[in-house]
Amino acid sequence: MSTGNVESWTGNMAEIGAAYPFVGIETPLMIAGVVFWVWWHICQLRSENRELEEAVKKHGNAESLNKAIDASDPNKQ
């Protein structure tokens, strides 16, 4: 007994086709994969929105922005 269509590597090898475990589960696997992909984008977008909001809250003022510009200015370092 095995989880796939292969129980022995002897005999007529030309008769072996799909060799991965749980043959027949491809469509549910595909759906799960697509859900995982879309879920990743949703999580990433939420996280990015949060980070940008925090950054604007912290740096969205003249003092902070001038400080950042000065930090990039080689003449003021």
Partner: peptide
């Protein structure tokens, strides 16, 4: 297709799908 048996390990024998 994403759910094709040929996207997985396959030794070229008869198809299931």
């Amino acid at each position: 297709t994403a759910n094709s048996e040929l996207m997985g390990t396959h030794l070229g024998g008869p198809p299931v799908q």
